[in-house]
Simulated scan of single mutants.
Amino acid sequence: MKFRSIIGALVSTAVSITALPAMAATFVFNVQVVESIDVVPSPTFDLPDVGTVGTVTFLLDAATLDSDGDPLTGINVDAPLSQSLADAEATIGGLTSDLSDVSIFGFPGGARFSNGSFSNITISLAGADCIALSCTLAGSFSILKPGAPAPTLFADVEALLLDPDAVARFSFNGTVQGEFVSFVAESVPTPVIPLPAGGILLLSGLMGFAAFRGRQHVVTDPR
């Protein structure tokens, strides 16, 4: 009887697990600035320099968004998504950015999270008022993998976010006080560096950079 009770409890637990509601997932990528074309001179609008590290975060509740059975919902459509179901933000040096009108666009090789149709990226910098500086910036958050098919489900976008070979990118360009600016930060593989005389110092640096390449996958509260 005791054995049957244990089996019954295990079966009940398994059923409970499979019946759990959908959960929104947050994906955090460590990124590095690979392009920073700034206003020159830049007394108030100073973008993080190339090499600056930070994070790019995506939130996606794929199961909830796919639950209506329409494989194209949210992909290449005009209607914005709820920020509780999809979102993206960047924190790099003194720069922060967050989407407010989320759309997701699928294309061969990746997916893009943007405000509306790839526009109206708001950039926050310490001491910089983009309204006063007449900022006109367009950009997006992307998850990219060359050769990957265009996603048609939110689950496909989630699979890209989970793919260790995919690259996360935050980028924008436009004008500030009439001058062109451009910015790109992305998760990058460890570069090949020639071995100098200080081999031990190099080794510790490579180990640190390899750790920087990592990403975290955190599941938030069930919905």
Score class of each variant (00 low, 15 high):
M1E: 05
K2Q: 07
K2S: 05
R4S: 04
A9N: 09
T13W: 14
T13F: 15
S16P: 00
T18S: 06
A22R: 11
A25Q: 14
A25L: 09
A25G: 00
V28R: 10
F29K: 06
F29A: 05
V31M: 08
Q32C: 04
V33T: 02
V33L: 06
S36P: 01
V39S: 02
T44S: 13
P48Q: 08
V50G: 03
T52V: 05
G54Q: 13
G54L: 12
V56K: 10
L60C: 02
A62M: 11
T64A: 09
D68A: 12
D70Q: 04
L72N: 10
G74H: 08
I75Q: 13
V77H: 14
D78H: 07
A79N: 09
L81D: 05
L81T: 01
Q83R: 15
S84C: 01
L85D: 15
D87K: 06
E89Q: 08
G93I: 02
D98T: 07
D101Y: 15
D101L: 13
D101R: 12
D101G: 00
F105M: 07
G106Q: 14
F107V: 02
G110Y: 11
G116Y: 15
F118A: 10
N120A: 14
T122E: 14
T122W: 13
L125F: 05
G127R: 13
A128K: 09
C130R: 06
I131P: 00
A132Y: 03
L133D: 05
T136Y: 08
S140E: 11
F141E: 03
T152N: 06
A155Y: 04
A159Y: 11
L162Q: 10
P164M: 14
A168L: 08
R169C: 02
R169P: 00
N173E: 09
G174H: 13
V176S: 06
Q177R: 07
E179F: 03
E179I: 00
F180W: 04
S182C: 04
A185W: 07
V188C: 02
T190P: 00
T190Y: 02
P191V: 08
I193N: 04
P194S: 11
G199F: 12
L201Y: 05
L202K: 12
L206C: 02
M207G: 01
G208A: 14
G208I: 04
F209Q: 13
F209R: 11
F212E: 06
G214D: 11
R215L: 07
R215M: 10
V219S: 09
V219R: 13
D221W: 11
